[in-house]
Simulated scan of single mutants.
Amino acid sequence: MQVLLLKEPREEDSGPDPYVKELAAHGHRATLIPVLCFKFVSLSTLSEKLFQPDTHGGLIFTSPRAVEAVKMCLEAEGRGEEWRLIKDKWNAKSVYVVGKATGDLVQKLGLKPLGEDSGTADVLSRLILQREDANVLPLFFPCGSIKREVLPTALRENGVPLETLTVYQTAEHPDLQENLSQYFTQQGTPSSIAFFSPSGVKFCLETVRQLSGKRLTQIKFAAIGPTTADAMTTEGLCVSCSAEKPTAAHLAAAIAKVLL
């Protein structure tokens, strides 16, 4: 069956998208349409913070894009050798992440992630509160322009100091509407559509409704996690399944189950 994945693709040099591969293993043909585009900002400030580990109690990454911003800083300024020395100071502290995808990218920077099994910022905030208190130096949180406030609020209410820096801005992919229209024209209405972020729901849903018409109720809508599922429900969608964890294997298994 046809499955439409509304997410950003993997980087070109990182191989086939794992969600497409996992769904193929279940006998489904998945198509990925990029929903978001990103503009990186404040990279000079980010670079300064990265090379001042003594002023922070640890790092927090809740998205692959924030880790990509760090990688861009290191590559642009040619400070790889210096980073090899500095990263050990960060590893002596705590480097928190949400999800395995973000954790894998953090490891490629030479850092040791904590919280890879936390599928949401809510869960990660509980882990941080178990390990940190008001006496810690501020945790440094490079993030996106439309981050949720769950984690900052939880830490603030419990007295754990936090310093945030917006390092990327999120916008609708310029080809999104055209790509959606082309997909429905050429392949018809998919059996399942998977959303990967509240932003994806915001940017895609009205077009999906228009293109699907009366067939909308036949589509099995899937969510990568509870935050996205909540956004879908708020918009009046019936969420057929949600991944137990935000991984390709878990989402593919959930979709395959409802498409039996």
Score class of each variant (00 low, 15 high):
residue 257 K to D: 14
residue 58 G to M: 04
residue 110 G to T: 09
residue 52 Q to A: 15
residue 99 G to S: 12
residue 47 S to R: 14
residue 18 P to K: 09
residue 254 A to Y: 03
residue 57 G to C: 10
residue 27 G to K: 14
residue 122 D to R: 08
residue 125 S to Y: 04
residue 11 E to M: 10
residue 47 S to T: 11
residue 251 L to A: 05
residue 216 L to V: 03
residue 175 D to C: 13
residue 257 K to M: 10
residue 243 A to N: 08
residue 149 E to S: 12
residue 88 D to C: 01
residue 2 Q to D: 05
residue 65 R to Q: 11
residue 208 V to L: 15
residue 215 R to E: 13
residue 56 H to P: 00
residue 108 K to F: 02
residue 167 V to M: 03
residue 225 G to A: 13
residue 51 F to V: 09
residue 152 P to A: 04
residue 99 G to K: 02
residue 259 L to S: 05
residue 101 A to C: 06
residue 113 P to I: 03
residue 204 C to M: 11
residue 127 L to M: 15
residue 83 W to V: 11
residue 10 R to F: 13
residue 180 L to T: 02
residue 175 D to H: 13
residue 76 A to H: 09
residue 123 V to G: 10
residue 43 L to V: 03
residue 6 L to F: 09
residue 39 K to D: 07
residue 171 A to H: 03
residue 111 L to Q: 06
residue 203 F to V: 00
residue 180 L to F: 04
residue 125 S to F: 07
residue 154 A to R: 08
residue 188 G to E: 04
residue 89 K to S: 07
residue 11 E to D: 12
residue 224 I to Y: 09
residue 24 A to W: 09
residue 99 G to I: 00
residue 109 L to A: 12
residue 243 A to S: 12
residue 100 K to I: 15
residue 228 T to G: 05
residue 193 I to L: 04
residue 148 R to M: 06
residue 126 R to P: 00
residue 123 V to Y: 05
residue 106 V to R: 12
residue 143 C to S: 06
residue 203 F to A: 02
residue 79 R to D: 09
residue 134 A to H: 08
residue 89 K to D: 12
residue 168 Y to E: 00
residue 135 N to Y: 10
residue 35 V to D: 05
residue 229 A to W: 03
residue 181 S to Q: 15
residue 225 G to C: 11
residue 209 R to A: 08
residue 84 R to A: 14
residue 164 T to M: 14
residue 206 E to K: 12
residue 30 A to L: 03
residue 176 L to S: 04
residue 153 T to F: 01
residue 56 H to A: 11
residue 117 D to Q: 15
residue 52 Q to M: 09
residue 139 L to M: 10
residue 180 L to P: 00
residue 105 L to S: 07
residue 226 P to A: 13
residue 138 P to H: 09
residue 72 M to F: 10
residue 27 G to E: 08
residue 3 V to G: 06
residue 44 S to R: 11
residue 39 K to E: 13
residue 128 I to D: 05
residue 199 S to M: 05
residue 197 S to E: 05
residue 235 E to M: 12
residue 23 L to T: 04
residue 32 L to N: 07
residue 154 A to Y: 01
residue 206 E to H: 06
residue 86 I to S: 09
residue 217 T to Y: 02
residue 217 T to L: 06
residue 190 P to F: 06
residue 226 P to Q: 14
residue 97 V to Y: 14
residue 244 E to T: 15
residue 1 M to F: 04
residue 53 P to E: 15
residue 223 A to C: 08
residue 49 K to S: 07
residue 80 G to P: 00
residue 244 E to W: 01
residue 66 A to N: 00
residue 192 S to L: 03
residue 230 D to T: 13
residue 138 P to A: 12
residue 18 P to T: 06
residue 195 F to S: 10
residue 77 E to P: 00
residue 118 S to W: 01
residue 21 K to V: 13
residue 28 H to D: 02
residue 204 C to W: 11
residue 77 E to H: 13
residue 180 L to W: 01
residue 124 L to Y: 10
residue 94 S to L: 08
residue 97 V to E: 11
residue 210 Q to I: 13
residue 246 P to M: 11
residue 215 R to P: 00
